[in-house]
Amino acid sequence: MAKKSIIAVATAACATTILLRKKDIRDKITQASHSMYEKVKGRKSKKALESQVKIGHSHPYDYEDNKMVGEGALTSIQHYNQKQQNSHS
């Protein structure tokens, strides 16, 4: 039984070594472990806190966010105008 445990541990160690050679996989594992640690500790990550602050409070120089908000506003206006035109036709 001890021999099987040693083989299982050695196999897991080899697989881990092979997986951790690639930087992108290693980064994903690191990020996931940090996220899990934060959840266990009951703290929110910087990314979660940043997204909470950003909701409804677009920074004037955040051009991508402002562009997205503008496009969303135009979409709703276009939808409203389309409904109005269809109801009057």
Rank of each mutant, 00 (worst) to 15 (best):
residue 71 E to R: 06
residue 69 V to W: 02
residue 37 Y to G: 07
residue 10 A to G: 03
residue 23 K to W: 05
residue 7 I to R: 09
residue 71 E to S: 01
residue 15 A to I: 15
residue 11 T to R: 05
residue 73 A to R: 14
residue 44 K to M: 03
residue 16 T to P: 00
residue 61 Y to H: 02
residue 69 V to L: 11
residue 8 A to I: 10
residue 22 K to Q: 04
residue 61 Y to K: 04
residue 13 A to G: 06
residue 74 L to M: 12
residue 89 S to L: 14
residue 1 M to I: 02
residue 81 N to Y: 11
residue 3 K to S: 09
residue 75 T to M: 06
residue 21 R to Q: 12
residue 44 K to D: 01
residue 38 E to F: 04
residue 76 S to G: 02
residue 87 S to G: 00
residue 26 R to F: 10
residue 77 I to V: 14
residue 71 E to W: 01
residue 56 G to Q: 06
residue 26 R to I: 04
residue 8 A to N: 09
residue 6 I to A: 13
residue 77 I to Y: 01
residue 72 G to I: 03
residue 14 C to V: 13
residue 43 R to Q: 05
residue 12 A to S: 12
residue 39 K to A: 14
residue 41 K to W: 01
residue 22 K to T: 00
residue 48 A to I: 12
residue 46 K to N: 11
residue 27 D to A: 07
residue 88 H to S: 08
residue 55 I to W: 05
residue 80 Y to S: 09
residue 3 K to A: 10
residue 19 L to A: 11
residue 3 K to M: 05
residue 57 H to R: 12
residue 5 S to L: 15
residue 66 N to Y: 00
residue 46 K to V: 07
residue 66 N to R: 11
residue 83 K to E: 12
residue 81 N to L: 15
residue 86 N to D: 10
residue 52 Q to F: 07
residue 75 T to I: 03
residue 28 K to E: 03
residue 21 R to D: 06
residue 38 E to H: 07
residue 10 A to K: 04
residue 36 M to L: 11
residue 29 I to V: 15
residue 80 Y to R: 10
residue 16 T to K: 02
residue 40 V to H: 05
residue 75 T to R: 12
residue 39 K to D: 15
residue 88 H to K: 11
residue 81 N to S: 11
residue 30 T to M: 05
residue 65 D to F: 03
residue 75 T to N: 05
residue 22 K to W: 00
residue 76 S to Q: 08
residue 52 Q to N: 10
residue 26 R to T: 06
residue 85 Q to Y: 07
residue 39 K to W: 04
residue 51 S to C: 08
residue 83 K to T: 10
residue 74 L to A: 08
residue 44 K to Q: 03
residue 72 G to V: 03
residue 72 G to C: 04
residue 83 K to L: 15
residue 51 S to N: 15
residue 30 T to H: 08
residue 65 D to C: 03
residue 47 K to A: 14
residue 59 H to C: 03
residue 82 Q to R: 15
residue 34 H to T: 01
residue 37 Y to D: 11
residue 11 T to M: 09
residue 39 K to G: 14
residue 62 D to F: 03
residue 19 L to Y: 09
residue 88 H to G: 00
residue 17 T to A: 13
residue 33 S to W: 08
residue 43 R to D: 04
residue 22 K to H: 02
residue 5 S to M: 11
residue 35 S to H: 07
residue 62 D to W: 04
residue 8 A to K: 11
residue 17 T to H: 04
residue 50 E to A: 13
residue 59 H to L: 12
residue 67 K to I: 15
residue 48 A to D: 14
residue 15 A to C: 12
residue 42 G to E: 01
residue 54 K to S: 12
residue 85 Q to D: 07
residue 86 N to E: 13
residue 60 P to T: 05
residue 8 A to M: 08
residue 46 K to R: 07
residue 32 A to T: 09
residue 63 Y to E: 15
residue 53 V to I: 15
residue 55 I to D: 09
residue 72 G to N: 14
residue 14 C to A: 14
residue 37 Y to P: 00
residue 77 I to P: 01
residue 74 L to Y: 03
residue 20 L to D: 02
residue 73 A to M: 13
residue 72 G to S: 08
residue 79 H to C: 05
residue 64 E to D: 13
residue 1 M to H: 02
residue 85 Q to I: 09
residue 84 Q to D: 10
residue 76 S to V: 04
residue 64 E to C: 01
residue 85 Q to M: 09
residue 52 Q to E: 15
residue 88 H to P: 00
residue 11 T to V: 15
residue 5 S to D: 13
